[in-house]
Design a binder for these strands. Structure first.
Lengths: 261, 261
DNA sequence: AATCAGGTTCCATTATGTGGAACAAGATGG
DNA sequence: CCATCTTGTTCCACATAATGGAACCTGATT
């Protein structure tokens, strides 16, 4: 992965954001030099971009001259989250589903080819809840992702799938567009999507699509569990409940659904 | 509040972000027209800025043509949060302080003239934890804010205070820079900051500063409680514990502290 | 002391964003 | 039912703002 894709037609803004993106996806703090390597821009230019981002509070310099995302992003995100109507409406339903199954329940939406998790309900209080909210995963190897894809118009789904770079996380990860499309058909028939250890070994889930009437928001919810505790059969037994919960959420959405309630 | 302050010297980026800011701080969804009113820009220009923001996933259009913050911000924020070293280091200490007092414990840092909350530990599990993280409050009427200000170099503190627009939230809200500076002196002497119902009636707190050696990060932690349950005297009895916790966190910070551990 | 890599500043050039005006599409109302 | 207003979108000549090369710091390293 040499250099970050620079969104071609959003000009200056796109370049700035792609700097953020590089920093966000780096596993460890990046210094100026590291950035310069990953982003194909002259040193001077990059330096100014960074300065601007810092001035705006979107980026922070650490004493050791490495960079991290700025706290202003946290502030924005808190607002984005609390204003999100889907999350708000879904919450009681997620709780109910968790009560029923005793396993972790996720709510996520498609953003391009990624799933972004909006909420999570799990038993073990020890695990910090917010740790997961806002995280993202590829759409082709998660239940929520495949559920979200399945309710897109076929051409839209294909367009997105064309952008996917299929990485084989596990033995069972779907290897290509063809396999994925086949599964989307299956999901459309049954109304349920499964992740059979396709993203992480030992973890599987059953999901169902959640979407607005106009498909401007598509995603899904899932019940996730470790294989050692919950069998495939047991998982399948929740399929109807998951679907019912998804339907209940959809029914609660205002006709003209917006991210704010 | 007619129009949003546009950061003058970050050019295009600044303008784009100020659009986000307007949307973020609006209590209800804004339509194109509302934005055009609040942002002093020609319609055409604004329209393109919005389009770019949408394309970058920083903004979303709702079916009813109102706008909300995009989910990509959530993703960025999740990373920003999980990479934040201060939060990570502070967490066990916050828990311990919560165990001791039984009341809500906050950790926040100064960002300009605002406090941004990084973490929160509270008893009532019913309240969603992440609801508060990332929220912000003015620095002049919160314990954490005043604590953070108190450890800034005097001239820096004064510079920031000069930017404050003192709004009288309650009877006891500090009315002006002079009063605030006087209190900062007091905090420097005692090592503890108080919010005596200065932000919300019926809520008070005791706080202590947390900061890096070079003061590049300053903030504080606080124990917050409703007045009806916890007396001023009781609050004061925790002052030493709060200070000790703050010291413990500072001691745990790497010498070259960066937001990442 | 000399060299080098990392980081920052400057400024002429040019690409990019700007904003006025024209256009489209609903509302409103006379 | 047509006229008019209000809201939202597109276009393009122009000016501003981003660009990137080069010069310049600074502190390691030899």
């Amino acid at each position: 992965m040499a250099s970050a894709k620079i969104s071609s037609d959003t000009g200056t803004l796109g370049k700035a954001i792609s700097v953020l993106d590089v920093i966000a996806s780096a596993p460890e703090p990046l210094r100026f030099r590291d950035l310069a390597n990953q982003i194909d821009q002259p040193r001077g230019t990059l330096h100014r971009q960074i300065s601007n981002l810092i001035e705006e509070g979107l980026l922070q310099v650490n004493p050791d001259q490495s960079y991290s995302l700025g706290l202003r992003l946290l502030k924005f995100a808190a607002q984005s989250w609390s204003q999100n109507g889907l999350r708000e409406i879904a919450e009681p339903h997620l709780r109910a589903l968790h009560e029923l199954t005793g396993e972790t329940v996720h709510l996520g939406v498609l953003q391009g080819t990624e799933v972004i998790y909006l909420d999570k309900v799990e038993s073990r209080q020890a695990v910090r809840m917010h740790s997961q909210v806002g995280n993202s995963s590829p759409c082709y190897c998660t239940g929520v992702g495949k559920a979200g894809l399945s309710v897109l118009p076929r051409d839209e789904a294909e367009a997105r799938i064309a952008q996917i770079n299929f990485h084989k996380f596990t033995e069972t990860t779907l290897p290509n567009a063809k396999a994925l499309l086949r599964e989307l058909d299956e999901i459309n028939r049954t109304g349920n999507a499964y992740d059979r250890e396709e993203h992480e070994p030992g973890i599987h889930c059953v999901a169902a699509p959640v979407f607005t009437a106009d498909r401007s928001i598509t995603g899904g919810l899932s019940v996730t569990a470790p294989c050692y505790r919950i069998s495939q059969r047991q998982l399948e037994s929740w399929a109807d409940d998951v679907r019912a919960t998804a339907q209940a959420i959809i029914a609660d959405l205002p006709v003209k659904m917006g991210p704010r309630a």
